[in-house]
Simulated scan of single mutants.
Amino acid sequence: MSFFFINEEYFPNYTLYENQTPYVVDPKTLSCETEPLPATPALMLCLILIVIFLLAIPGNLLVGWVIGTSKQALTPSDVYLFHLTIADGLMALTIPFWAIALLKGWIFGDFLCKFLNLAFDANFYTSILFLACISIDRYLVIVHASENVGTRKRKSSRLLCAAVWAFSWALALPALFNDAFKRSSDSERMLCHETFDIGSATSWRNVTHGFRHIFGFFLPLLVMIYCYSITIAKVLHSRGFRKHRAMKVIIAVVVVFLLCWMPYHTTMIVDILMRTDMISFDCALRMSVNRALVITNSLALFHSCINPVLYAFVGEKFRKKMTQLFQQKNRQERVSTSRSTSQTSEGNGAIL
């Protein structure tokens, strides 16, 4: 997933042909040439990325710490949430590189261009697929009253986690087509972008974007809607304040997922339709799509910050567990301080 600020969409008057043919001017889009973002908008986007980074890292670390230090047997949902925090945290770790590239261009070389895009794409798929896994487990627990805490179930959930990670990294392999290069021979600003050199560049781009839409949005969304709709129907026919509160969390999860990711994927679909001439070229529309890609990509990244809040901080069990851990840590610190003070007092008395 090439980031918006180093993406080809900012340079629509260039077309990459197969067999490593250099970029050449496309007369159809010559009048619609765009330049890199001006300093002020670029700085604002850079600040947004830094805010996302500063929120995502501690939030996901805290959730991972609470789950990882639990002495109780973890449910499949706990396991999926733990891996979700890892994926969101790793994805957030790449953000500072993109923020710097936004201001100065790509200065990190060809290897990091490939590796960071590969890591970002893999964790992008992993994060969203684990959201679907959580929805399936909630469906099994509430609708079919399955506790899923047996040894066999725990082993199955861990095997599923391994499969999700392997599948996500496999889906992310097209990121290896990213290369660091200059936009033109007279340009000093480096880019990090897809350069498909096997077969048709357009076909490769459409296929990889198609995978991104199917496995990174539509398929997980269908799973979530199916599982949560039946779960909500079950909750509505049950009694108990906690189950109705759980329903509110479920609705919030789906709504936030749609708000964060639907605009980005919708914009990307419009972009694909324009590139395949299914939508006739229009300079004003092209420019609007470029700006929309900037905004929607930033909005989508906020999902890595919101996940810990939705799946953990809203949950009563998590808050109780977190409170207990902090209280336990404070007690240990007080005991340690008390012992240290006692030893110091005894030492002072012995010296006198």
Rank of each mutant, 00 (worst) to 15 (best):
E147N: 10
E147Q: 11
N148F: 06
V149N: 14
V149P: 00
G150N: 11
G150E: 12
G150L: 11
G150C: 09
T151G: 06
T151N: 07
K153F: 03
K153Y: 04
K153N: 06
K153H: 08
R154K: 12
K155I: 14
K155T: 11
K155D: 07
S156H: 09
S156W: 12
S157F: 09
S157M: 08
S157L: 04
S157T: 10
S157K: 00
R158H: 11
R158Q: 14
R158G: 05
R158E: 11
R158S: 10
R158W: 14
L159D: 01
L159R: 07
L159A: 06
L160F: 08
L160N: 05
L160H: 05
C161D: 10
C161P: 02
A162G: 07
A162R: 05
A162K: 07
A162V: 06
A163S: 13
V164R: 01
V164Y: 02
V164T: 05
W165E: 04
A166I: 14
A166G: 08
A166C: 12
F167P: 00
F167A: 14
F167K: 01
F167N: 02
S168G: 07
S168N: 05
S168A: 15
W169F: 15
W169G: 03
W169I: 10
A170I: 15
L171Y: 07
L171M: 13
L171V: 08
L171G: 04
A172S: 12
A172D: 04
A172L: 08
L173T: 13
L173F: 12
L173N: 03
L173S: 07
L173Q: 04
P174N: 04
P174I: 02
P174M: 05
A175E: 01
A175Q: 01
A175N: 00
L176E: 00
L176P: 01
L176F: 11
F177H: 10
F177P: 00
F177W: 11
F177K: 05
N178Y: 00
N178D: 07
D179I: 02
D179S: 10
A180Q: 11
A180Y: 02
A180W: 02
A180D: 08
F181I: 07
F181A: 05
K182P: 02
K182Y: 14
K182S: 09
R183N: 01
R183M: 04
R183Q: 02
S184G: 09
